[in-house]
């Protein structure tokens, strides 16, 4: 039995996820930009907060796409390389208004955050020596460390459900703390190892099937 994925050669004319649905009219690039500016302004806490915002603004309030479709886009955004919130914005913007919508959505979601951070960066040197700011920052540092450690633990709990996966997570953490290896190299190695693993699993399945 051959797998359908192996036999199906990618054709250039395959339907892309950006094919517009016939029901809703396109809101246009400016409409997309404005909707994403609103979401960017209240996007606290990273990629996963983005899904809730998209559901509320794009699915429920504006009814531009269905909830089901949004879930699909968000799942895809997590697989693609890049910042999850940007990926999700681009996929949705692409679906709503093509390439212009893609760029408009990404530009929109970073507009307010960019202005906030740029303002903070300009003020950083003069503000950080104020005693109040210094005291607040001194309390924030252990909070940041704890929160990142907590996020990491939650990720290990989620990703390490099997024993080999848990061992891999712990080994990566220990190696990283002890030796600070190049992360990009290790991630590339992970991708290669996954591809090799899939190759062997598929070959074994084919042999067993014969």
């Amino acid at each position: 039995m051959s797998s359908p994925a192996a036999s199906g050669a990618p054709s250039p004319s395959a339907p892309s996820p950006s094919a517009p649905s016939p029901s809703a009219p396109s809101p246009g690039a400016f409409g997309v930009w404005f909707a994403f500016v609103k979401m960017g302004a209240v996007l606290f806490g990273g990629g996963y907060a983005m899904l809730g915002l998209l559901e509320r603004e794009i699915v429920q309030r504006r009814r531009w796409i269905s909830s089901r479709e949004m879930q699909d886009y968000f799942a895809l955004a997590q697989l693609l390389p890049g910042v999850i919130a940007i990926n999700a914005s681009m996929l949705v913007g692409n679906r709503l208004a093509g390439l212009r919508g893609n760029v408009a959505a990404a530009a929109g979601v970073v507009t307010v955050p960019f202005l906030c951070i740029a303002a903070y960066a300009v003020a950083y040197d003069s503000v950080r020596t104020l005693p109040e700011v210094e005291a607040a920052m001194a309390g924030m540092r252990p909070a940041v460390a704890g929160m990142i450690a907590g996020f990491g633990l939650a990720m290990v709990r989620k990703a390490g459900k099997t024993r080999p996966a848990l061992a891999l997570a712990i080994a990566t953490c220990a190696l990283s703390v002890a030796f600070d290896p190049p992360i990009i190299g290790i991630l590339a190695l992970c991708v290669a190892a996954g591809a090799v693993w899939a190759f062997f699993v598929r070959r074994r399945a084919r042999k067993a099937g014969m």
Binding site: A145, I148, C190, A198
Partner: peptide
């Protein structure tokens, strides 16, 4: 299968890296 396998290895690794940042901080 290939996508599933790659992410099955990537996810625990990334979780380990994030933990390591927490420890370093």
């Amino acid at each position: 299968l290939a996508v599933t396998c790659v992410f099955a290895i990537l996810r625990p690794c990334v979780a380990g890296f994030v933990c390591a940042v927490g420890v370093a901080l």
